[in-house]
Amino acid sequence: MIITQQQSKNLRQYLSEVFSYRETITEIYDHIISALEQYEGDLPFQDAVNNIIKVDFGGQDNLVDLEKRFKSAASHEIRSQIWSAFSKNIKSWGVLLGLTLLIISFNHRALFMNKQFIFGILMAVGFGAFLLNGLRTFRSGYLYGMEKNSIKDRILTEVTAIPMRLVLVIILLNTATGSNILKDLSPNVQYVGTIVLYTTVSTFLLSYYQCFNKEYSLKVTDN
């Protein structure tokens, strides 16, 4: 069957009404269009689409269920991807960064443990997370040219909030109670703790970037 631009647009519009997320729309749209292109029967466009949805997907209700299951699988996948990248990075890049920071800063521990300095670094981390989030949103929107949200965008946005929670913890530690807790720790423990914190947060942001960068890499193929 030859599909006109208007029919293609109508199908996409229909799928946008059925689905909430970009991934399911693009995947099911590609499936239906591919099936229509191969279709050689006499059914008009709309009936052919309904037939494909009924036979290949078990009807419209199943489409909604399919998206729910996809969301659940995607959430699990993204978290395990980031965790896997983080584990891998912390063993190579993380150790290297941590050791470098230790060597560079050991003779300047007082400066390093300065509250303003720590806040400055953590604010930079927060800003870095904010920038990466913006870059990801821009790239995903730019590449796909769709207004619908992405399942992965939503999950990744939640993931970026993790370092921000860490910043929040540090701010809480800056209160009187928090300061009392910190006083009980020796300066050396505080110093090593700070190095570990910088290393962990930087490694996390690197892993996050690697994951979404890979996710949104696209290749254009003209058949």
């Binding site: 036979v55 290949d56 997907f57 489409l63 699988a73 290749k219 003209d222």
Partner: peptide, 26 residues
């Protein structure tokens, strides 16, 4: 049929057995 394929693909992907990439085709 009946939408069995995609949940299975997504499950395999989330289990780390499959990897995906996207291309612009037509």
């Amino acid at each position: 049929t009946e939408g069995a394929l995609y949940p299975a693909l997504h499950k395999l992907e989330s289990d780390g057995l499959l990897v995906t990439h996207t291309e612009i085709v037509d």
